[in-house]
Structure formats: C-alpha cells, structure tokens
Amino acid sequence: MLLIHCPHCGPRAQAEFVFERPLESIIQIDEALPDLIPKLYSRVNPKGPSWELWRHTYGCQSWLKLHRDTHNHTIHAVLEIGQTPEGGDA
C-alpha cells in the first residue's frame, strides 16, 4: 500500500486515495472523435515513470497529479491540479 504525500494533508495511506486515469487520457468535453478514441481507448501503459490522476477521496477530496513509477512504485512528485512540474508537461 503506497504512501502518498498529499500536498494538503501530508503523507497518507493509499487506502484514502483512488486512482483515476493516466493524465494522457483526460478527455476534454469538446474533444473531437478522432482525438477522443485514442485518449479513451489506448494507453502508453509505461513500465516506469507515469503521470497519473488520483483523488484523495477519503481525505481532502483533491484531485492530484502523481508522477509515479509503475514498476518500483516510487512516487517522484505529487502536484495539485493546475500545477505543472518544473521543466516537464503534465
């Protein structure tokens, strides 16, 4: 069970969080069909670092961007929605 450092609540157990989706598959409401299909139905599914959307559902209910390694579970960054990482895009 991961320990996720919520920017608002501090380090908390994964049991308080819910994974939503990789950031790459966030679909804007006005997304056109040719763009929506790959976002909804295909994944890089990386074995390694991945930017993901999680929610601190049982804590502060914030949506959070996690930069997380899917292989060794290291969490490199936890950002709020609206924050972008230094030098990277998320």
């Binding site: 966030i26 804007q28 409401i29 559902t57 914030s62």
Partner: peptide, 13 residues
C-alpha cells in the same frame, strides 16, 4: 459524486 467532482475540478476548473 466522483464524476461531478472530476468534471468540476479537472475538466472545468
């Protein structure tokens, strides 16, 4: 509830 929050906070902040 989760869906509304997602649309509100992620898609339409």
């Amino acid at each position: 509830s989760a869906h509304l929050s997602y649309v509100r906070k992620v898609l339409a902040p």
